[in-house]
Amino acid sequence: MSMVTTAGLPQYGASVVIGLIGFLSLKEVLSASQKWNNSLNSSLNMVILPLLLVFAGIVLFKISEII
Rank of each mutant, 00 (worst) to 15 (best):
F55L: 08
V17M: 07
M3N: 15
A7I: 06
V16I: 15
T6V: 09
M46T: 12
V47T: 03
V59S: 12
V47M: 05
G57P: 02
V16H: 04
S39K: 14
I21V: 08
L24N: 05
I58C: 04
Q34D: 14
M1G: 07
S33R: 06
A7C: 10
V54P: 00
V54F: 01
F61Q: 13
I66P: 01
Q34S: 09
L9M: 05
G57S: 09
S64Y: 14
V17L: 12
M1H: 15
S39L: 08
L30A: 04
T5I: 09
I66K: 14
N45P: 00
W36P: 01
L9D: 02
K27P: 00
L51Q: 03
I58R: 03
A14N: 14
I18Q: 15
E65H: 15
I67W: 13
L26Q: 11
S43D: 12
T5L: 08
L26Y: 07
E28L: 04
A14C: 05
K62Q: 05
F55D: 10
G57V: 01
N41Q: 12
P50I: 02
K27C: 00
S15L: 04
M46R: 14
E65W: 08
V59Y: 09
V59W: 03
P50V: 02
S42G: 15
G13H: 09
V47I: 12
V4M: 10
S42E: 14
Y12F: 15
L40S: 07
V29W: 08
F23L: 09
L30P: 02
I66H: 07
